[in-house]
Design a binder for these strands. Sequence first.
DNA 1: GTTAGTGCAAACCTTTTGCAGCTCT
DNA 2: AGAGCTGCAAAAGGTTTGCACTAAC
Lengths: 163, 163
Amino acid sequence: MSQLDIKESLRQRGKRLTRQREILLELIDRSGDHLHAEQLYQMAKERDPKLNRVTVYRTLKMLKQGGLVDELDLMHYDGDQHYYETRLKQEHAHVICLRCGKVEEFFGEPLQRLRKQVESHFGFQIVLARTEIGGYCSHCQVLRAREFEEARQENAPRAKKRA
Amino acid sequence: MSQLDIKESLRQRGKRLTRQREILLELIDRSGDHLHAEQLYQMAKERDPKLNRVTVYRTLKMLKQGGLVDELDLMHYDGDQHYYETRLKQEHAHVICLRCGKVEEFFGEPLQRLRKQVESHFGFQIVLARTEIGGYCSHCQVLRAREFEEARQENAPRAKKRA
DNA sequence: GTTAGTGCAAACCTTTTGCAGCTCT
DNA sequence: AGAGCTGCAAAAGGTTTGCACTAAC
């Protein structure tokens, strides 16, 4: 969903396109996924120092209610704030590395199957769905193993390095 | 994961089994899933009026870190607090009705497939995973349709009931 | 006897609200 | 003109922290 689509959607719902919203929409549009309110606020403040944090929250809330952005928790990787991304057509899971914080997106058929099964199994009408997976990316798995090894050696000082 | 299993796990990790923890574990064990800290606190206070809210938070945090309970958001159905459930062997999704708040659990093979695919696709080591689906249960779908109809008639007063 | 755990008060972080004034349309 | 939006200040909601005291091991 592009900035233009979002603007059009606001127009149709009789929302005003203020200077502040222009700034926020542009930032959301180009700065990629997964920002939280404070990040967005800091970035917006550079373009308009008077823009208030509250406006960021109000704008995000409005976009969320309009179905234009999705709200994520990302396994509370870094505190309890929420993260936002412009809504994509295709459902996807978020895979978060608990060590480095990197977020991968996974698009795969199990997600569609899951959705269909829940709908038919419970007669449920799905409005929004979210899958978040936390763990360690391949890079950090190696680093963690190394860290463990180092910690082990520190706990057993004077031991010979090799048996 | 039963209360006894949890106690054993604490013992092994050198955690103390205090009077307060006994109370909280028992409540978590028997009062079913999906409570949040405040609910747990209110229940615990009835058994020990001196037990502090902070102890509830600290206990939940410890159990979470020990992998004994899982933390959920339930699509922030009712505010931004977290919900807790004792960890089950089998992965499942939570299906939350946004109107009545009912939570269903869905166990199905797409979840296992998803997990496997993410592991192999990214070489990712999964620690915890969470799928939350928000929408309307079959019961509330009917009620919502009725509510819409009533609202429509109020907005068009004196209109004939049937065309 | 140690050390982990508790209660209390106070702080913290994120988000929301009330209201007067401003600005899109 | 007028509804909708903004900024400011203040509050709310949920959770964490520092510290002196207590209790489990």
